[in-house]
Design a protein around this nucleic acid. Structure first.
Length: 349
DNA sequence: TCTGGGGTCCTAGGACCC
DNA sequence: TCTGGGGTCCTAGGACCC
């Protein structure tokens, strides 16, 4: 979806359309403390993009419309969109709240038909939800994803098999999903700026520099090779909640109170999805924004609030004994989740 | 009043097992 | 002359994505 959260707000409040719109995550520390989640294109033109502090966004775009995130709204619109997408494809994989992969192989006989189908899907999404999106059609997920970002908003880009190398060669390495800040910095030092540059490095050199898995992947990705399948996600692997504390602290009572609230929220999500958990983590983010964790795996899966809360308490206490810095943000996370089916299977053994 | 919050995947070292 | 090779699970941390 294009600038998804902001587009949802434009749909709900037509009067803000045409103005810069900025969707904010307020930290709760008061005033404009917090960060920008996303913004529409009018705001982006002024330099307001995801991740920057809200106060800076206000300096860049004083007349913009600033709204807090309304996740329920985005989630419900997302559900409508995903249902439409799913109905058109052979296999379907939701990537995030506003992205999905659709396997069209069995539905069309060539790339021309695939393009027509993609246009039809875009059209139906527009008709039924009022929102625009951008699509990429390609022989694999890696290239399709890059193609979907190529023309935005409301774009449709097709990359046929014999066009892949030419399409990728002039793009920045950070356009490859999986190449972020750290990897691109190291590649820049090797004189690599574009995906084309990257494809000229030997696999051996890349493995020497980045290790077996990442090195081999970089070589493949630079040539647009990707064998990963479009497959339905089994369900989430972990559920977490994290918040910013009112002020930096390491006071036990304040932290345990926060842990209680976070545990309750996590527990509610577990309950609605009928999931058990086997490991619990306490997450702490220090004033320099480094993340540290303390986790424990239980002897057996649990599904009750008491176990979650008391384990989180113990982890938080142990953490404070081991580390002596002030905390800015704290979180609680559960992992090793299992649904009812898996739980039953375990029970039979 | 500087810097959300929700995720996935990978790696490395240690414990433990056969 | 001390002691192989293969595997799983756990914890902690890091990179990356939206």
């Amino acid at each position: 979806m294009d600038y998804f959260f902001a587009q949802c707000e434009e749909r709900e409040h037509p009067e803000i359309k045409g103005k810069p719109v900025v969707i904010c995550v307020y930290s709760g520390r008061g005033g404009d403390s917090g960060a920008v989640s996303t913004s529409n294109y009018e705001a982006r033109k002024l330099g307001v993009k995801a991740g920057i502090p809200i106060y800076r966004a206000k300096k860049l775009a004083p007349d913009a419309v600033f709204l807090p995130v309304n996740m329920e709204l985005y989630r419900s619109i997302s559900d409508e969109v995903m249902e439409i997408l799913r109905s058109y494809c052979e296999r379907f994989e939701q990537e995030s709240v506003d992205e999905a992969f659709c396997e069209l192989t069995g539905k069309v006989s060539d790339f021309d038909e695939a393009k027509l189908l993609a246009a039809r899907i875009k059209d139906e999404i527009k008709q039924r939800t009022g929102l625009t999106c951008s699509a990429g059609v390609a022989p694999n997920k890696l290239v399709a994803k890059i193609a979907s970002d190529f023309q935005k908003p409301d774009g449709l880009t097709v990359v046929r098999p014999d066009e892949i190398l030419r399409f990728l060669s002039s793009l920045k390495i950070t356009d490859l999903i999986g190449v972020g800040k750290k990897t691109s910095e190291r590649l820049n030092e090797l004189g690599v700026k574009t995906i084309g540059d990257l494809s000229k490095l030997s696999k051996d050199d890349l493995i020497r520099e980045f290790g077996q898995a990442k090195g081999a992947w970089l070589k493949q990705a630079s040539q647009g090779i990707d064998d990963s399948q479009v497959e339905e996600r089994e369900g989430t692997e972990q559920i977490g909640r994290i918040i910013t504390l009112k002020e930096n602290t390491r006071e036990l009572k304040v932290i345990l109170d926060a842990v209680d609230k976070l545990s309750e929220d996590v527990y509610r999500k577990l309950e609605t999805r009928k999931l058990s958990f086997k490991s619990v983590s306490f997450i702490a983010i220090s004033t320099d924004l480094k993340t540290r964790t303390k986790s424990r795996t239980l002897g057996a899966p649990a599904k009750d609030f008491e176990t979650l809360k008391s384990t989180a308490h113990e982890l938080a206490k142990a953490f404070l004994n081991e580390h002596h810095f002030l905390l800015r943000r704290v979180g609680v996370r559960v992992a090793n989740l299992a649904g009812e089916k898996e739980q039953k299977t375990l029970g039979e053994f």
